[in-house]
Every structure is written in C-alpha cells, then in structure tokens.
Amino acid sequence: MELRICHLYPEVLNLYGDRGNILCMTRRLEVRGISCSVESVGIGDNPDLTQYDLFFIGGGQDFEQEVLLDDLRGGKGDSIRSAVRDGRTFLCICGGYQMMGHYYQTHDGVRCEFLGAADLYTVGGDRRMIGNYAYALGEESGGSTVVGFENHSGRTYLGEGVKPLGKVLKGFGNNGEDGTEGVRFNNLFGTYSHGPVLPKNPQFADHILKTALTQRYGSAVLEPLDDTMEMLSHYRVLEHYLRLSRS
C-alpha cells in the first residue's frame, strides 16, 4: 500500500507548527510499512491533483492571502473543488479550513470570496478566540476526543449541507456560540486546531489515514502503535489545562 500526500501551499500556509501534522502522518504510515510520499504544491505549481490521496492545508497570515487567492483563481480552485466532491481526503487547519468555505467577511463588511468547496462561511470578529480547547469528534470521524490550541478571530458558521467535525467540550470552536467545531463534508476534515492537531490525537490521525487508504483501496486496517507518549501529552492538556476527565 502507499499513500500520496499533497501539501498545499506550504510556503504560505505554515503558521503555528502545522507542518507537524505532515510529520505525524508520514511517520505513522512508515512505521507500519506503508510507503508514503509528500509533495509540496505551491503558488504557481500546476500538477494534476487527481494523483493525490490526501491533501493537507495549514493556517496562514493575512498578508499572504491575496497572493494565494490569485493562484486559486488560476484553475487550482476548480481542481480542489472536484477533489473534495470526489471524496478525496482533506485535512484543513484554521486559515486553510476557512478557505474551503464560501467567503470570509471582515468585520467592516469587506467580503473575500473563497473556494466554496464546503458549505460554510466565516465572519471576522473583534474578539480573538485563543487557548487550549477540546472537542468530541462525531461518530463518522471516529468519535474520539481531540485536544488542541485554537487562535482565531474569524467566526465560522456551517450551512445545511455539512456536519460539524465535533462538539466543543471546552473552548470556543467554530464561533464560540453554537458549540460546534470544524467541519466534516465528504472526506474533508476542517478544524481550527493547531498544536499541531495530529501528534497529540493519534486516534484522529489514524482515522484520517484510514479514510484516505479506504478511499483508494476499498478497505484498510491500521495495526495499533505504541502511543504512550502521544497520550501523555493528550491527557496533560485534557486534565491539567482543561480540567476534563478521560472519557
């Protein structure tokens, strides 16, 4: 078995250690003897996106957004939308997650059109939602608990056609109002969680890998790994910082 990972826009969407997610995925595949390749696809690159099984998009800075949107309008946006529609697996973090929605509207009313690959939109707020947080994944995403660090002023609202990725246990989540966190649409996983999210949440990491492998091979079994260190840092955040008990 093999998995081809596409790291979208690593040169601009790389804030907050999100590349740790790529490290985590490749490592968890390699120790299981599953070969894995990671290709960076950045601004100006135009490879055939249908050759990839899993797409990763991280968070970024405001300054660089314009450069990025120009590139998306140049055709890559269409390819990404098709890949989402075809059920390719996507992990999108923070800015990358917002970018999958219809638009981002700043709090003074300026609207920035995004990809519209998933039915959601984001509105800029004046309060930054920052801190360690936790959410319970929906059953379709494995049902485990995720801990992470959120840092966003945008408030994201989900449309009819999509599900939240999980339910907030502590923290703000999508908008600090409706208790939802992230999005799950087809095989697209969107979340605000930095940290990076995958190393401390090995069950979620494996769920995403399994989704991508299943999509390609029809079924996939991932043998369990020794996750003692992963869970030590998971429980440290859950218990010490969030005062939540192990489920």
Binding site: Y16, G17, R19, G20, I130, G131, F149, H194
Partner: peptide, 9 residues
Amino acid sequence: GHDISWIWD
C-alpha cells in the same frame, strides 16, 4: 506565550 506549537517548526 500559551501556544507551544512553534516547537514543531
């Protein structure tokens, strides 16, 4: 800083 994710960078 409360966010320690930079260690991954």
